[in-house]
Amino acid sequence: MPLPAFVKSPAVRRHAWYVGTLALALAGGGFFAWLAMPAGWLSGALVATALAALLGAPVGVEKNTRLGVYMILGTSMGSAITPETLRGITTWPVTMGVLVASLPVMMVAVMAYLEKVAGWDRRSAFFAAAPGALSTVLVMAESSGADTRRVVFGQSLRLFVLVALLPAAIGGLGHEPSGTLPITPVVPDMTSFLTSLGVGIFGGLLAERSRFPGGAMVGAMLASALVHGFGLIEGRLPDIFLIIGFVVLGANTGSRFAGTRVATLRHFLVDSLAALAIATVIALAFAVLGAWLSGEPLPKVLVSYVPGALEAMTIMAFVLGMDPAFVAAHHLMRFLGLALAIPVIARLFFGRAEIPSENVEIDKTEPKD
């Protein structure tokens, strides 16, 4: 019997894959949480979705779902802010100054490896070496003639490895990553719950409308942090909201590998992993310096310095029991610095190009929104 016409609709199939992606991510996150792995709901969802993507499944997360979940996560992270946290802000300029100093060192070292050792063209090496600001990097890479496949793969692989392995690695630096959710008390009543959620959503929508970097999550976190920091509301959202948020974030990160073929892995995997190792070693060296100068714990400074995405690393700090505001501020500083500097540098040294330097016959892996 033939299938109904609506079942054949591309929109229906696309939404069916959205649902399937979330179900797969939930199963993976639940399995990792059952194994009591650090950040299990997040890393398990990421690994399960990435494996499906590499096997050819058209996995993905619907944009509005992602934005809504980011607002909920931001609201919960903002609830971790206390007056003690605000007093600690006085040490932030020290670690931010060290972070800024690390950026040119990291980019030059990674670019030198990709160009001189791996044989990448200079344009592609430059944009792949950028430790963040992916949207700006991709726009400039396309208009400057870089091989966007290399850039996207290197950036996506870096985020995947950091989210999957960073919780366990942090344990080696003396931090005790928890396999469970944070233990901050839950909001005591429905009024506080609705108020907290409403404040977070308002802040997220306002920041998103203003095109603020990481707007949905960062805006919700800032709004929530204000009301919690001044003692107007106490308590975080119930655990189920955090679990859903971690699962969706993991699914979104893993789905970046959708459409990637074995040929792409063969050409770019080793180069991208080596570049990540170089960037991580440099981040660790500067994190040691920043921690020594500021008196902040090394694991927290390292999570603030590693070349990961703003939203992912902020949530990683939260689930590992670190100060999410501290981590978010540093990644935001790096994002803004790179977003302002990269277009200027690219225009001065590369200019515009009519034909990109994509001369390897492999698939194009498009980035997710």
Rank of each mutant, 00 (worst) to 15 (best):
residue 295 G to M: 04
residue 347 R to G: 05
residue 296 E to G: 07
residue 246 F to I: 02
residue 41 W to M: 01
residue 232 L to P: 10
residue 94 V to W: 14
residue 123 R to E: 10
residue 87 R to C: 00
residue 350 F to L: 07
residue 19 V to C: 00
residue 12 V to N: 03
residue 352 R to N: 13
residue 88 G to S: 13
residue 154 G to P: 08
residue 166 L to N: 01
residue 358 E to K: 08
residue 186 V to S: 00
residue 37 M to A: 14
residue 134 L to S: 09
residue 81 I to W: 03
residue 237 L to N: 04
residue 280 T to V: 08
residue 153 F to S: 07
residue 180 T to W: 00
residue 140 M to N: 13
residue 60 G to I: 02
residue 302 L to M: 08
residue 179 G to K: 02
residue 269 L to W: 14
residue 249 L to G: 03
residue 256 R to P: 07
residue 183 I to G: 01
residue 302 L to E: 06
residue 59 V to S: 06
residue 89 I to S: 12
residue 100 V to L: 12
residue 335 F to W: 09
residue 304 S to Q: 07
residue 205 L to R: 01
residue 358 E to F: 05
residue 83 P to Y: 10
residue 215 G to M: 12
residue 178 S to R: 02
residue 45 A to D: 08
residue 17 W to V: 04
residue 146 A to K: 11
residue 152 V to N: 10
residue 142 E to F: 14
residue 308 G to C: 07
residue 313 M to H: 03
residue 139 V to L: 11
residue 269 L to G: 12
residue 192 S to V: 02
residue 178 S to G: 10
residue 250 G to V: 02
residue 100 V to R: 04
residue 2 P to W: 03
residue 118 A to R: 09
residue 85 T to Q: 00
residue 142 E to P: 09
residue 360 V to S: 14
residue 126 F to P: 10
residue 355 I to R: 15
residue 98 V to K: 08
residue 357 S to A: 10
residue 31 F to K: 04
residue 249 L to Y: 07
residue 210 S to Y: 15
residue 207 A to N: 09
residue 18 Y to M: 04
residue 245 G to K: 01
residue 328 A to R: 09
residue 73 L to R: 03
residue 84 E to H: 08
residue 357 S to I: 00
residue 19 V to H: 00
residue 99 L to P: 12
residue 73 L to M: 12
residue 117 V to M: 14
residue 133 A to H: 12
residue 160 F to D: 07
residue 214 G to A: 07
residue 208 E to R: 12
residue 162 L to V: 05
residue 301 V to R: 02
